[in-house]
Design a protein around this nucleic acid. Structure first.
Length: 507
RNA sequence: GGCCCGUUCGUCUAGGGGUUAGGACGUUAGAUUUUCAUUCUAGAAACAGGGGUUCGAUUCCCCUACGGGCUACCA
C-alpha cells in the first residue's frame, strides 16, 4: 500500500520546553528515512495545549534541528502546500471532523465536567470512560436528543469523545515490533475535542497526517497504547487506504535505576539531556545542552543514530550521510536503551580527532576570547590545535589543555622541582638559554638533539632536567611533547620563560 | 490494579537450533610517551528462570519473574 506512495514523514514536537535526546533521535530517524527515500521531512508543531506552550520553544526546536544538520523541507515558518503546521492554526477543520464522526455514529458529545470525572475517579480506582459506563454518564448517547440539544444550545461546555466499539480487535503491523493487537473492550473513549474547542493529540495527528499525506510515522514507544485510537480514527474518518505505516521507537532510559530519561536525570548526574542550552523564560533556569558542552553536531548525531540502531557490522562511527545510506527500520532494536554519557564522550573524542583544525577554529577562538586572548593568529591557533586535538574530549577542554601556549605559567609545580634543585642545574639552564639564543632556525628535532646532547655532557640524568624544563615552560607535569611546545612557543618566549622560572625555582 | 511492549558482558549491542557467543564504551594489567593525556597489546566480564519442541536450544513455543510504557479535556 504505502510502498508506492511518496515518502513523507513529520517530526511533531510540542513546544513546551527544551528538546531532549529522545526527541532529537525521533527527528533523526524520521529525517534519515525521508532522505534515504528522497521523501519529505516536515516539521509540525503541536501547540494546542496553550497552558503548556512556551514562547520561543518553536524557534529553539528549529535551531536544534539545523545544528544537527536536519533541515525540514517544510516547516511552520515556511508555509508550503500542506500548511499551516501549527495545530492551533488548524482549529476549524478539527471540529468539522469531530462532528463528522458524531454524525456517523463513531463519536458523541460528553457533558461531564473535568471535576465530575475527577470525583468518579476518586470513588472508583479503575474508572475509565468506556463502553462499560458511558450510558451512566452525561453524554449524547445516554441523554435524549432533546436533552442533548438543550444542553448544546444552552452553551453547556462539552467534549467530543470517540465511541470505541465493543468486542473487536484492533491490530496493525509495527515496522519494528511486528503485529500488535488490542482488545477494544479495554480501550477507553478518549476525548477528541476539548471543551475549549482545541483538539487533543489523538484527533489532531490523524487529521494532520492525512492532510499532509504522511506515509510513515516514527514516534516513541510511549505512543503504542494509543495506537488503537488512532487506527480507529483512520477507519472511522474513511481514510483507511491512506493510513501511514507505523513504527514505535524504543525509549531512551536513565543510565542508573530505571525509567525514561528526563531533564532531571541530567541535572542529577551531571550531563546534558537537551540538544542545546534551554533557558526557561518563566523560571529563569538554564538547562545545559550538548552543543554548549562542546559536542560536535556530527558526534551528537552519530551517538544518537547508533542508540538503538546498528548496521549489523562492527562499524560505530557514522556521518549523517552514511546513516542516510545505511539506516533501516528493520534493524532498530525493540528494547529501550540506557543512556551512557561515557560512550557519548567517546564519540565526541573520536569526532574531534577526525575534525580538521580549520573546522574547530571558530569555537576555539571563542574560547580564547573568553580568556582574553585576542592576539593569536589563526595559523598559530591551528598549530596548537594540531598538537592538542587528540587530547580533547570536548572542544571546551582546549583551554585546560593548551592555555600555556598563549599565557605564561601563572604558577609552577615547585614541589616537583625545588627539593632536588641544585646550583648545577641553574648553571645548566643558564648556559642552555644562551645557546638557544644562538639558534637561527628553531625546529623541534634539532633543538631536542642539542638539548639531549648537552644533558649527556653535563653528566646529569635525563629525567632530572627534562622534567624541570617542562615545568619552566608550562608550569606543571602535563602537556604534549616538550620540544613540540618549544617550537611552537618560539625562541624568545622559551628563553623568557626559562629565565622567569629560574627565578622562581631558586627563590 | 488493567492493558501493551520488552529481556545477550556493568552499559550499548552483533549473532542465531550445533559458535572458543563477536565488537564498542567503561574497567584491569602491560607497552609507548623520560610528564599527563592519547595510542597500542592483553585480560576479566553476558544469553533472567522454569517447562516444552528437537538428536541438540542462548536461538522456536508456553509460563513465570523482572524491567519499561500507557492508563488526563498533556503530548
Amino acid at each position: 500500500m504505502s510502498s508506492e506512495r511518496k515518502v513523507r514523514v513529520r517530526f511533531a514536537p510540542s513546544p513546551t520546553g527544551g528538546l531532549h535526546l529522545g526527541g532529537v533521535r525521533t527527528a533523526l530517524f524520521n529525517y534519515l528515512f525521508a532522505r534515504q527515500h528522497q521523501g519529505d521531512f516536515i516539521l509540525r508543531i503541536e501547540d494546542t495545549d496553550q497552558t503548556r506552550f512556551v514562547a520561543g520553544a518553536e524557534e529553539y526546536i528549529t535551531e536544534c534541528l539545523a545544528w544537527c544538520g536536519m533541515e525540514p523541507d517544510e516547516s511552520p515558518n515556511k508555509p508550503g502546500a500542506f500548511g499551516p503546521y501549527r495545530q492551533s492554526e488548524r482549529k476549524p477543520s478539527y471540529r468539522q471532523f469531530a462532528e463528522q464522526l458524531i454524525e456517523a455514529g463513531y463519536a458523541y458529545y460528553a457533558f461531564d465536567t473535568a471535576a465530575e470525572l475527577d470525583a468518579e475517579r476518586q470513588t472508583q480506582p479503575n474508572f475509565r470512560y468506556s463502553h462499560e459506563n458511558r450510558m451512566n454518564l452525561r453524554n449524547s448517547l445516554s441523554l435524549s436528543t432533546a436533552e442533548t440539544e438543550a444542553l448544546l444550545s444552552a452553551g453547556h461546555p462539552y467534549t467530543i469523545r470517540i465511541k470505541v466499539p465493543t468486542d473487536e480487535t484492533v491490530s496493525f503491523t509495527d515496522l519494528i515490533r511486528g503485529k500488535v493487537s488490542f482488545d477494544t473492550n479495554l480501550v477507553d473513549d478518549k476525548v477528541l475535542l476539548k471543551a475549549d474547542g482545541m483538539p487533543t493529540y489523538h484527533l489532531a495527528v490523524v487529521v494532520d497526517d492525512k492532510a499532509m499525506e504522511i506515509s510513515h510515522i516514527f514516534r516513541g514507544e510511549e505512543w503504542l497504547p494509543s495506537a488503537p485510537i488512532h487506527i480507529l480514527l483512520w477507519q472511522y474518518l474513511g481514510w483507511e487506504a491512506a493510513m501511514p505505516a507505523w513504527a514505535h521507537l524504543p525509549l531512551i532510559l536513565k543510565p542508573d535505576g530505571n525509567g525514561k530519561l528526563s531533564k532531571r536525570d541530567g541535572d542529577r548526574l551531571g550531563f546534558p539531556v537537551y540538544a542545546m542550552n534551554w533557558k526557561d523564560a518563566n523560571s529563569e533556569t538554564l538547562t545545559k545542552g550538548f552543543r554548549e558542552m562542546g559536542f560536535l553536531p556530527e558526534a551528537f548525531v552519530n551517538m544518537l543514530g547508533v542508540l538503538g540502531w546498528n548496521d549489523g557490522t562492527e562499524q560505530e562511527l557514522f556521518s549523517i550521510e552514511e546513516l542516510i545510506a545505511k539506516f533501516s527500520i528493520a534493524r532498530v532494536s525493540k528494547a529501550g536503551a540506557k543512556f551512557d554519557f561515557e560512550k557519548a564522550k567517546w564519540f565526541n573524542h573520536e569526532w574531534i580527532k577526525g575534525a580538521s583544525t580549520q573546522s574547530l577554529l571558530p569555537q576555539v577562538k571563542e574560547l580564547l576570547a573568553e580568556q582574553g586572548v585576542n592576539d593569536a593568529s589563526d595559523a598559530q591557533i591551528e598549530e596548537v590545535l594540531l598538537a592538542v586535538k587528540e587530547r580533547l574530549t570536548f572542544v571546551s577542554d582546549f583551554w585546560a589543555q593548551a592555555s600555556f601556549f598563549f599565557q605564561r605559567p601563572a604558577s609552577y609545580d615547585l614541589d616537583a622541582v625545588k627539593p632536588k634543585w641544585s646550583e648545577e642545574k641553574t648553571a645548566f639552564f643558564q648556559a642552555m638559554s644562551i645557546s638557544f639564543d644562538g639558534f637561527d632556525t628553531w625546529e623541534a628535532p634539532t633543538l631536542e638533539a642539542f638539548f639531549k646532547e648537552a644533558i649527556k655532557e653535563s653528566g646529569m640524568k635525563m629525567g632530572e632536567l627534562m622534567m624541570p624544563f617542562r615545568i619552566m615552560l608550562v608550569g606543571g607535569k602535563f602537556g604534549p611533547d616538550v620540544f613540540q611546545i618549544v617550537q611552537l612557543l618560539g625562541k624568545q618566549e622559551v628563553i623568557a620563560r626559562m629565565q622567569l622560572a629560574l627565578k622562581a625555582f631558586t627563590a
